[in-house]
Design a protein around this nucleic acid. Structure first.
Lengths: 160, 160
DNA sequence: ACTGAAAGGTCTAAATG
DNA sequence: CATTTAGACCTTTCAGT
C-alpha cells in the first residue's frame, strides 16, 4: 500500500472528478507551484495509482438503452480462460470478471435494446464452447454511480 | 437518438481514451481548426453525450483489494426507494441499480478486504429496513474492462 | 458551420534552493 | 523534495467567410 500525503490526496480528489482541471488552478488552491502538481501526477501515474484520463460517454445517448449484468455458468471450470477469450471478441461486453458464487464469470453488457441483448446472448455468448448457460440482470435504472471512495487514503491531519 | 458525423465520431473516439489530449492535436489529425474541435466538444456536452473527464483511479493501489457485486433481495418491493437511500450513505458502494431477475437491487462494492466487505454487509446493508438478504459475487480477477463500444455511431463512410 | 488570428492562460524542463 | 523561470504550446473568443 502506497503512502499519500496531503498533496497527493487533494490532487487525487480533484482530478478524478475533473481530469481537465488546470494544474495551475489546483496549485493555487493547494498553495503550491503548478510544476509540483505536475510532478505529483506523473508519480501517481508511475506508481500505477492513476492511469489515463477518460471522457465519460453517456451510453444511452449513443444508442445503448439496455444495460445488463450477466452471470455465466460453465460446463466445466477448466473452460474459463477459453470462454474469456471468446467474450473479449464481443464489443458490447464492457467488463468481464471471474467471480465467486453461483457463476464462474460475470460480465456487463450494453446493447441497443432487449432484443439486441437477447441476440448477443443467444447467437454469441451461448455459442462459446464451455458456456453452460447465463442469467441476466437487466438494469431498469442506475440509481447512482460514483468514483470509488478515497477514505482509505485521506487522513484528517493536514500533514502526516 | 443523436446524429454523429465523422468529426463527432473521431473526437469521441479520441477523447474518451485520453481526455487530456490537446484539442489542437485532434484538429491537426482531422485537418480542421482547433476552434471547431472546441465547438464540437461543447455541443457534445450540451447534448449530454459526454459529461466530465475523469482520471481513472486504480482501486487496488489505494487499498481496495476486494471488489464484489452484490444482489439484494427485499422483504417487499415497495421498500426499494428507501433502501437505495440507505445504500447511498455507504461510501464503499460505487454503483447501485434496479434490476430484473432474482434480485431487486444490484450494487458494486469496493472494500479493503473480505473481512471489511463482510462488515459492510452485516453491519450496514443488512441493517437497512426492507433488506431481506444479499448474495455476493466476489471478483477474483477482472479480465478486462473497456469503454463501451462506439460501433453504434460509427459509420464506415467518411461523410454521411 | 467553420476558420483564422490574437490574447491570455497553461505546461514542462532545466536549473536552483 | 519543492520552486522558479522562460519558452513552447494550448485554449478560448470573436470577427469574418
Amino acid at each position: 500500500m502506497h503512502h499519500f500525503d496531503y498533496i497527493d490526496q487533494q490532487i487525487l480528489l480533484q482530478i478524478r472528478e475533473d481530469a481537465r482541471k488546470p494544474f495551475s488552478q489546483i496549485a493555487d488552491e493547494l498553495k503550491i507551484s503548478n510544476s509540483l502538481v505536475h510532478q505529483r501526477i506523473r508519480k501517481l501515474k508511475q506508481r500505477g495509482v492513476i492511469d489515463q484520463a477518460e471522457f465519460i460517454v453517456n451510453e444511452k445517448q449513443i444508442g445503448f438503452r439496455t444495460k445488463s449484468y450477466v452471470g455465466i455458468k460453465l460446463r466445466e471450470a477448466r473452460y474459463a480462460e477459453k470462454v474469456v477469450e471468446g467474450l473479449k471478441e464481443i464489443p458490447e461486453i464492457q467488463e468481464c470478471n471471474y467471480v465467486s458464487g453461483n457463476y464462474a464469470i460475470f460480465i456487463l453488457i450494453f446493447a441497443y435494446d432487449n432484443q439486441h441483448l437477447r441476440k448477443i446472448l443467444y447467437e454469441q455468448v451461448h455459442q462459446i464452447d464451455g458456456v453452460a448457460g447465463t442469467d441476466s440482470f437487466i438494469c431498469f435504472d442506475t440509481n447512482f454511480k460514483r468514483p470509488v471512495s478515497l477514505d482509505a487514503i485521506v487522513k484528517t491531519k493536514k500533514y502526516d
